[in-house]
Write a protein that binds this DNA or RNA. Structure first.
Lengths: 245, 245
DNA sequence: CGCCACTTTGAGTAGTGTCAATGCTGGTGG
DNA sequence: CCACCAGCATTGACACTACTCAAAGTGGCG
């Protein structure tokens, strides 16, 4: 039996071999479908509009996903981290809809779509994991939609800085910042000058300090309040979801 | 055998009974999990932050999905039409993340999450359909992200008007418009006044005419060019997606 | 008829974008 | 070693888009 291309739990695809319903033969077949690759910072995993043949699972590192307009304007869709899957668009389309660029050294497992369909056919646990990964991506995407549509420049920047923290963390002070001002702007629907000015303003107010490649958070609470309160449905309204049958 | 709650092909869930691998008994069990409901325009299918127990399949009609900030600002995530599924967020979370409101008379099939997990377990064809539906939602969401982040007010409005058309249609002249100016604004990250002004400007330029509840498109080509060109990756760049192994 | 929600239009302004100049840093090559 | 260069970040001056506030018009419905 050949060794599995991919060993860690963070890889969605690899969980195929953990599913109890599979025979040794099936496990072996799945292992052989996986292709492991390494990319350097700046390398492109796949290009928008290219033919989509592989689905990628990120094992390690960080990747940015962008879409662009023909005049060169480009928008960062999200930053992808270990455990997430990339290239899911090909479940419906024949081409990638985003360009995926490595921000750091990156390790991936990839699998051909047609192979993946086989795995899904045989292995409901894998499809559930894929469904959960997609749902998570979708929620992240919709959070960005809300922020792009509703928030002001300072709110957007504060929100972004907070996403650099592990969730529910009020301790951490210094976090790495992999994006340039331009990339932050491309993510937040702003210009690099505006991002720079807002960051300078936060610095003046002693909310953050900026080193090269890192940000120090000096005042979590204030930053959170600047980020704009996160929903929780204020409107009492008439909550009658009448169903007629 | 009880009759199926839901007959039309547009319902993702109902395709369960089309899957050839199921026994008559299994089909019967799945049928009994489905609950059919009707809502009137303005009714709420589910509220943001409520406990998520059901997944909905839209059989008929149109629904808007919104998320809000605690100060009342709200953003329309997307408009959902027949054949799409709603409430997918509960695959990961325990609560809905959006409020779903009927824009028209709406027919749905709904199913409990725990029941759906059983169906997926037994029926790979259903999970594939769910995966494709989620991927489609995600692509739609990312198109909105791009437009919110990159486009100007006139580009946004033009883009929105074009989405009212069936895809690749250069013929249709009159299309229904279910959204108010306020709702269009909530979808495009603008104010209702700005939307109104842009629409008036388009009218003056004889690109559209606005009746109540409908829009007449007088100049498809111009509208498309105003909408901003749709990607297609202009940058030649060095397309070396080096992989190191 | 009068009320209410929706839409349109105007005037003034705040917030971002644009353009341009400067400074900083790291890398390259003489 | 230093000079030079390219990319990134910062800052300023200015322009302009889109927002705010306000008023008036429109249409449906009790």
């Amino acid at each position: 039996m050949t060794s599995c291309a991919c060993e860690i739990n963070a890889c969605v695809l690899c969980e195929a071999r953990l599913y109890p319903g599979l025979t040794a033969e099936q496990v072996c077949r799945i292992r052989n479908m996986l292709i492991r690759e390494t990319y350097h910072a700046g390398d492109v995993l796949f290009w928008e509009a290219d033919a989509a043949t592989f689905l990628f699972a990120l094992r390690d590192g960080q990747v940015k996903l962008i879409r662009s307009l023909s005049d060169g304007r480009q928008q960062i869709m999200r930053l992808s981290i270990a455990g997430q899957i990339l290239g899911t668009e090909a479940f419906n389309d024949k081409t990638y809809n985003r360009t995926a660029t490595a921000l750091t050294e990156v390790n991936t497992c990839k699998i051909r779509y047609q192979d993946l369909l086989q795995v899904i056919e045989q292995n409901p646990a894998v499809s559930l994991r894929v469904i959960q990964a997609l749902t998570h991506e979708l929620m992240q995407a919709e959070t960005l939609i809300r922020d792009l549509g509703l928030k002001t420049a300072p709110e957007k920047v504060a929100t972004f800085v907070l996403t650099l923290l592990p969730p529910c963390d009020n301790q951490t002070v210094e976090v790495p910042l992999l994006l340039s001002r331009r990339e932050m702007a491309e993510m937040l629907g702003l210009t690099e000058e505006t991002v720079s000015r807002v960051m300078a303003e936060f610095h003046r107010k002693k909310i953050i300090e900026t080193g090269k490649g890192t940000i120090r958070l000096l005042h979590h609470a204030l930053l959170r309040s600047l980020a704009g309160h996160e929903s929780s449905m204020p409107q009492a309204g008439n909550r009658n979801s009448q169903s007629v049958n």
